[in-house]
Simulated assay, not measured.
Amino acid sequence: MKLTIILAPYDSGLYHSGFGQGPDAIIAGGLVDELALRGHDVVVEDIGEVGDAQRREIATGFAVCRAVATKVELARDDERFPIVLTGNCLTAAGAVAGDAADSIIWIDQHGDLNTPETSAYGFLDGMALATTLGLCWRPMAATIPGFQAIDPSRCMLVDARDLDPDEKRLLDTLPVIRTQCADALDSVGRLKAAGAVQAHLHLDLDVHDPHLLQVNRYTQPGGPSPDQLRRLVCGLARSIPIAGVTLSAYDPAFDAKGEVPPVVGQLLGDFLAARERI
């Protein structure tokens, strides 16, 4: 398969800082070699430095989305499957736009469903899914080439074990499909019934059980093992067309033994093998 791996090495507007070091660490950990050994034609593209000189978080966050949307669309024009490695979950809004996805599978320990009105800390990345669903930051999202908000009924939220009270209240009003990793494949039919034709797969790596794989400082107890998550994404690849993938939130400073990159390589390798079989 022809693949384009797109690097968006930003964390909260900062280039190559915190989570922004994750994409390069995954590449240095052997991802390209792993996928090439499996027979894939792999190209790596880096969006480089974007945004303004002040590196304002909101402006830079959406500049990253715009750059990613353009890179993803170019990959698709070249009939290459896009995989985005990014620091922040907000980048998924750009990937969704470039994919022209009509639905999203959001696998994350967090809901990322805060809005400026409900966020206690003003953390932009905590509004990532809300932005992708068109619930906030609409003028900024409209600057992303090709962006169309995903209808909440065509969103599957997997795990989300760490929700703020306002996120729980919001979810009570939305037709988002809530599920856990063990039951997610049983919910794909509901996603299709809502009109999903091609989905974007978003993986926040902190969904993993931190006792088995520590990816950053925000992880809470619970979540799937690497094997459970890998089996889930392979099942999703066989169950619904996936237009593209984002992987986010890996901070190598919390992975002293370098355990995360090999896990990512195996996960993506097995996911792509499952996708090729459909």
Rank of each mutant, 00 (worst) to 15 (best):
S103E: 07
L124T: 05
V176P: 01
P262Y: 06
E79H: 15
I105K: 05
R55C: 00
A53P: 04
D108A: 13
L203K: 11
D108L: 12
D172F: 07
L232R: 14
C65T: 11
R154H: 09
A120G: 04
D24E: 14
G146K: 14
E79L: 15
V260H: 01
E45T: 15
R66I: 13
N216W: 01
V96P: 02
K192V: 09
T60I: 03
L191R: 10
A142P: 04
S153Y: 03
V188Y: 01
D78W: 08
D206T: 12
L229D: 01
A249Q: 12
V42M: 09
V233S: 03
G39W: 14
D251G: 12
R231G: 01
A128R: 12
M140N: 04
G126A: 15
A243Q: 08
V42C: 12
S225Q: 12
P139G: 07
R80K: 12
L124V: 10
S239T: 15
V50I: 04
H16A: 05
A97N: 06
G30I: 06
D172H: 13
F254S: 02
H211L: 07
D204K: 15
L157V: 08
Q214P: 06
T131L: 10
D162I: 06
G18D: 05
D166C: 10
G189V: 11
R76S: 00
L3G: 08
L129R: 13
D166N: 14
V42F: 10
A274D: 01
P139H: 05
G22D: 00
C89M: 07
T118I: 11
H208K: 13
D52F: 14
P116F: 05
A100Q: 15
A193G: 05
V233R: 12
A69Q: 09
P23F: 00
G235C: 07
N114S: 11
A130E: 03
Q266C: 05
K168D: 01
L3F: 08
C136D: 03
L133F: 08
D162Q: 14
V207G: 06
C65W: 07
T86I: 02
P262L: 02
G146L: 11
V64N: 02
F254C: 10
R138N: 02
R80M: 03
P261Y: 02
R154P: 03
L7D: 00
G195C: 04
L37P: 01
Y121R: 11
G29V: 08
Y10R: 14
A101G: 04
G30E: 05
R238F: 02
G189E: 08
T246M: 00
R154E: 03
P221S: 13
K192C: 02
D125E: 09
T118E: 00
I6W: 03
G146E: 01
Q220E: 11
D112T: 10
L201H: 08
G18H: 13
L213Q: 04
D46E: 13
P221A: 13
F62R: 13
A141C: 10
V245S: 03
A237E: 01
M1W: 04
C155K: 12
K257A: 11
V32K: 15
T132W: 02
D209H: 14
Y10I: 10
I26S: 04
A53I: 15
I5D: 06
A273F: 12
V158S: 00
C155D: 03
V260Q: 00
V96F: 04
Q266H: 15
A196D: 07
L85Q: 08
A28W: 00
T4Q: 14
G22P: 03
D255W: 02
V50W: 10
V263S: 04
A128D: 01
T118Y: 01
